[in-house]
Design a protein around this nucleic acid. Structure first.
Length: 583
RNA sequence: GCGCCCGUAGCUCAGCUGGAUAGAGCAACGGAUUUCUAAUCCGUGGGUCGCAGGUUCGAGUCCUGCCGGGCGUGCCA
């Protein structure tokens, strides 16, 4: 990629200019903040001059004089206090366009050292529907897994479903007393939720019911055959329905190892932690306290109370003998490291669980695991009142409901345009556009900030949306459809018009973007890039007519169209969004 | 109380390890179509980047304090 090439040449130029870099200093090359100055820029001369108390402008001149990459850059200039600006030569751009067309990965280089990365995301609960609150983890996790795989990592996706927990006491009791078999066949999750809610209400009215539920839970935990069978059926029915949802979302998992998968490992794990002195007993529970290895302010097991530090241990076994999700998470780590040889584990889970993960990761390190754990946190989707969507409150919007509404609206737009001859095709187009719109609404957003859920946002088909990007792709295809196979593309590629060059440089930057997404695990960088690419293509499309042109100009533009279509399709694919040939 | 996160245009949001005149979309207004899909393009207006200090050639970005909001903080996940 150009940025890496420039970085290489610039580093050499600093050395050739006789500048020795301070320890730990790395030269920066970034996209130009304003394309009037160039395609790429470096601020390193200014930063370095400051550190070394030199004149930044003079240092920049020195480096510029030593910079040798005539084949890559048509222009190197210095501006302001010492910005180094680089313009990529039309020849290099043309070469890159051809590389994108020839390469399966659109010219995106693979990482030097592929790693085995487990991505843990989505994690819905059994006997509960997926609601909009699951959007973030599901879409972000899927996207990051796709990108990681795309750049050459070995990726294992694992859906850590919530298939074990205290709610099963109530569900089992409800199953035995309130279940409607017909309704269960119709919509299993819906019926399970109904039963759960009814029992939940009953326990509040009558403490005796609560006792019965607790009894059912204990029986389940002790391996009672009837209750185990009911639980297994709940899991089976829910997963069956979830698979359909994931199917419509184009999301796949390599594994569905839910919490229950680790049940047998929990007891021995706690005993081992006790034996190794990592965990201790406290008030009847087994907990992990601080080991004092890190500074108090960095210690996840300490919290400041007034002017002293008070312990906030991770509890791994309750005083009643029950285990908690910290226990399960530790057992899960052991499995992923031992069985899958994971180098990294990414947890795509909301930011409220920050402390929990800090503790779990710290405990895992104390257990001797050097695996790199990352909590890929995200903000909350808020209700119209600005408060969190609560899982319990029932006032949530279903994930499928949102998708269906989006598809319906897209279908109306498709009908209006009459872009496809028959019904089945229009349905397919509407699904692509509607589903894509919902995904894009999420993925184009910075994951760390909260945002208010709005139908308008999720369903918008105008502006910076998936339909806009898909439309750009459709336009690339329409041109080739018009040619009806009557074209023989050659290697002739001469970029002369500003719009052509702008498009070519944008295409080239897919490589940088694909890698940048993983630096901070931010899909919105990819979405922003694709939006810019589509925007640049639309401008090119208006400025440079393709089919009316001839000779090399025509061939060049056709190459640009082909490359744009290819990158858009690949990029949207990384967001988990499909494309369509017409719309 | 303490910790973490957030506050940017009327609304929804970008803003990459500090960089050039703070950008998009929606909404508003004005243009563009005998030509490759107008779900498009081009343009106009719109800002005390919560407030006050500080660091420096340069701060939306880093530091301190304050205001406002959210989340978390020993036996739910």
């Amino acid at each position: 990629m150009f940025r890496a090439q420039l970085h290489h040449h610039l580093t050499a130029a600093f050395a050739a200019a006789g500048v020795s870099l301070p320890e730990g200093f790395s030269i920066d090359v970034s996209l130009a903040s304003d394309t009037r100055f160039g395609d790429y820029q470096s601020n390193s001369a200014m930063v370095l001059a400051k550190q070394m108390k030199m004149n930044p402008r003079a240092l920049a001149e020195q480096v510029k004089g030593a910079f040798a990459a005539d084949d890559l850059c048509s222009e190197v200039s210095i501006a302001g206090p010492g910005f180094l600006n680089f313009r990529i030569s039309p020849e290099a751009l043309a070469g890159k366009v051809k590389t994108i067309l020839a390469d399966d990965n659109c010219g995106v280089p693979a990482v030097d050292k592929p790693r085995t990365i487990v991505v843990d995301f989505s994690a819905p609960n059994i006997a509960k529907p997926m609601h909009v609150g699951h959007i973030r983890s599901t879409f972000i996790g899927d996207c990051l897994a796709r990108v990681a795989k795309f750049v050459g990592h070995k990726v294992i996706t694992d859906n850590h479903v919530g298939d074990w927990g205290t709610q099963f006491g109530m569900i089992i009791h409800g199953w035995k007393t309130l279940l409607n078999q017909e309704a269960l066949k119709q919509d299993a999750i819906h019926e399970l939720v109904r039963v759960y809610k009814e029992v939940n209400a009953a326990t509040k009215a009558d403490p005796a019911v609560l006792e019965i539920c607790k009894g059912e839970l204990v029986k389940l935990q002790q391996g009672d055959a009837d209750n185990t069978a009911i639980w297994q059926e709940c899991v089976r029915l829910t997963l069956e329905q979830l698979e359909k949802v994931y199917g419509t979302l184009d999301i796949q998992f390599d594994h569905y190892l839910g919490e229950s998968f680790y049940n047998d490992a929990l007891g021995p794990l706690v005993e081992r932690l006790l034996k190794d002195g990592i965990a201790t007993e406290s008030d009847g529970a087994v907990v992990i306290f601080s080991d004092g290895a890190s500074k108090p302010e960095d210690d996840p097991f300490l919290i400041r109370e007034g002017d002293q530090w008070k312990p906030t241990p991770a509890i791994i076994r309750k005083s009643d003998g029950g285990f908690l999700y910290a226990t399960t998470d530790l057992a899960t780590i052991e499995y992923r490291v031992k069985e899958w040889k994971a180098d990294e584990v990414w947890y795509v889970v909301g930011s409220p669980q920050q402390l929990h993960f800090k503790q779990v990761f710290a405990a895992a390190r104390r257990m001797g695991y050097s695996t790199e754990f990352t909590h890929i946190a995200f903000g909350s989707i808020l209700g119209p009142d600005g408060k969190m969507f609560k899982t319990r409150s029932g006032e949530t919007v279903g994930l499928l409901e949102v998708i269906e509404e989006a598809v319906e609206r897209a279908r109306a737009a498709v009908d209006e345009k009459e872009s496809a001859p028959d019904d089945a095709q229009r349905d397919e187009i509407a699904r692509t556009i509607g589903g894509g719109a919902v995904k894009y609404a999420e993925l184009s957003q910075n994951r760390l900030t909260d945002y208010k859920f709005s139908w308008e946002k999720m369903l918008s088909l105008q502006g910076n949306t998936a339909p806009y990007l898909i439309n750009a792709y459709v336009r690339t295809r329409a041109i080739f459809r018009k040619l009806d196979g009557n074209v023989q593309l050659t290697g002739d590629c001469e970029l002369t018009e500003a719009a052509e060059k702008a498009l070519a440089i944008k295409l080239a930057q897919f490589a940088e973007t694909a890698h940048d997404v993983l630096v901070d695990h931010k899909p919105n960088l990819l979405a922003a890039y694709l939006y810019e690419l589509a925007n640049t293509y639309h401008s090119f499309y208006e400025a440079c007519h393709v089919l009316n042109s001839t000779g090399t100009v025509r061939n060049t533009r056709l190459l640009l169209c082909e490359a744009t279509g290819k990158v858009l399709k690949a990029g949207l694919g990384l967001l988990g969004i499909r494309t369509t040939e017409r719309m």
